[in-house]
Amino acid sequence: MSYLDTITEEIKLTEHINLITSNGLKYLSIAHPKATASISLFGAHLLSFTPTNSAPVIWMSDDAIFNGVKAIRGGVPICWPWFGPAKESPTVQPLAKTQEYPSHGFARNSHWQLLSSQSNDDSCLIRLQLTDSPESKRLWPHSFNLIAEFIISDTLTINLTTYNTGNDNFDYSSALHSYFQISHPDAVSVDGLDQSTQTPRTLTGEVDIVCENPSATIALHDEQLQHTINIENEGNNVMVVWNPWESGAKAFADMPDDGYKTMFCLEPTIIGKKAVTVTAGHSHTLTTTLSVTPR
């Protein structure tokens, strides 16, 4: 993949985790008997996850840009502390809505700190941290400590915990903007997007919807790959379902024109109108756990 084109340094952190520097950016490469994965410290961005003897679970654009400035197309971007355009988010200060603020917040465009990494025969545990700074307070005037925790085994868990380290309460919205690898749109269906209707949803064209009554577990079935990706979520209040289809893919410089055929976004999300309030000294966690079962 392009982010490993020029490796200038590789440090072994544990038996299963290496810290790689490539083109000036840092990545964690995980090679465990139960799964392989990779994480960019830019954005605390999961780039890949493949359980042993399984097809890849996570989709990454072949044209993704890894320059430490632009958000990476594919993987699991972290949208925080707002989701969607800043001007439409009630969690953004009114003044910010008159200026050019990044869509989906600033966490996915920030360089994170590696807090810890450990591994054993069962799993790998990685924790990354982002804290407030003068630049973040220009965009969002709150004190915070944001921890992204990745537990990698034959399953993958991402815990995104928002700590309010200031003296005032704040509201935030967020998403784990998961891009899933699929074989072909005709081969997939989804269960659990709305608890009131358990009818599978199929992918037949451009889709960008908010499902406001999702089950705790979403099932993405792929008949061609003969497996189901199970997506268990906590801390979200909606699921966002997205595929840009042909016209949308062509509009993205960092996605192949046919990229829409092999990706499907199912995103545990906290939307602005249902923003979470974190009181001073407290925290809130958004979690997704991914597993694969054969069909």
Rank of each mutant, 00 (worst) to 15 (best):
S2K: 15
Y3I: 11
L4P: 08
T6K: 12
T14R: 09
T21P: 10
H32L: 13
P33Q: 13
K34A: 15
S38N: 02
L41Q: 00
L46K: 02
S54M: 04
S54D: 10
W59S: 13
F66H: 15
F66T: 03
G75F: 03
G75L: 02
I78D: 07
W82S: 07
K87P: 02
E88T: 10
V92M: 13
L95Y: 13
A96V: 00
T98W: 01
E100Y: 08
A107S: 00
A107P: 00
S117Y: 00
C124E: 08
I126S: 06
Q129R: 14
L130V: 08
S133H: 12
S133L: 08
E135M: 10
K137C: 10
K137H: 14
L139Q: 12
H142Y: 15
I147T: 05
I158E: 01
T161K: 09
Y163H: 15
T165K: 10
D168S: 11
S173F: 07
S174F: 04
S174V: 12
A175H: 05
F180S: 03
P185K: 04
V190L: 12
T199I: 09
G205Q: 09
I209E: 15
C211A: 03
C211N: 11
N213E: 01
S215K: 04
T217P: 03
T217A: 09
I218L: 04
A219V: 13
L220M: 01
Q224G: 02
L225C: 01
Q226K: 15
H227Q: 15
T228H: 00
I229K: 06
E234M: 04
E234Q: 14
E234S: 14
V240W: 12
V241P: 03
G248Q: 10
A251H: 11
D254N: 13
P256A: 06
D258A: 11
G259A: 06
Y260A: 05
T262W: 00
M263A: 02
F264T: 02
G281T: 05
L290Y: 15
S291Y: 03
V292H: 00
T293Q: 08
